[in-house]
Design a protein around this nucleic acid. Structure first.
Length: 195
DNA sequence: TAGTTGATCGTCT
DNA sequence: GACGATCAACTAA
């Protein structure tokens, strides 16, 4: 399937966020190729957005957010979790889209194995229906921070078309600031959306 | 089923 | 020194 061009990411963040729904993210870890269909995202608009890591400008932690659109920003939080974002817009802007949930398309066994390492594994939906879960399942961690999605390690391809009528929005989850903004987008009635 | 809490540590104040 | 763009286990009802 066709890899998304750089130009896809260099557009307004809210547009990119909505259009990422239905796309396929491809990763390779320990020889296994894994593909997940993006079904839930959240937009973080940098300096305009108190909930964004980039709100107060560039720091060592968030510097990847200020790269050109099409890079992967992975951050570590709560002492044990990684979350992945797709950087958008031009270099120096600091906007990104958080991947909150994916639906496994290929490599389900590998993802399940990644998730079960050390813990449980009962309901299949629980394997990638959260930002930290999908990172663990798809092998995304600190060393993937800053990865260029135009490369071959991790990239996003055309997936399936999602009719506008199936796209829903709501306030973002887990944030204490900027709650009024309905910048979480997800596919209606998709079983893999979180919660 | 809803609400609470422990785990665990890098980052910024 | 406080606090997360979280998760899963636990408790109460």
């Amino acid at each position: 399937m066709k890899k998304l061009p750089r130009s896809f990411y260099l557009r307004p963040t809210l547009t990119v966020a909505k259009e990422l729904l239905g796309k396929h993210i491809v990763t390779k870890a320990s020889g296994h190729s894994m593909i997940g269909r993006i079904v839930e995202v959240e937009a973080y608009l940098g300096g305009k957005d108190p909930a964004s890591h980039a709100y107060r400008g560039k720091t060592r932690r968030n510097e990847v957010m200020f790269l050109e659109g099409g890079h992967l920003y992975v951050y570590f939080t709560y002492g044990m979790h990684y979350c992945a974002n797709v950087v958008t817009e031009e270099e120096g802007i600091g906007h990104a889209v958080l991947l909150r949930a994916v639906e496994p398309v290929e490599g389900v066994e590998a993802m399940t194995r990644n998730r079960n390492a050390g813990n449980r594994g009962k309901n299949p939906v629980g394997i990638t229906n959260g930002p930290a879960k999908l990172c663990q399942a798809m092998g995304i961690g600190r060393s993937e921070n800053g990865t260029d999605l135009a490369g071959d390690k991790i990239f996003i391809t055309e997936g399936i078309d999602i009719p506008r009528s199936l796209i829903r929005s709501s306030p973002r989850i887990g944030v204490s600031k900027g709650v009024r903004h309905p910048w979480r987008f997800y596919i209606n009635n998709n079983a893999w959306v979180s919660r």
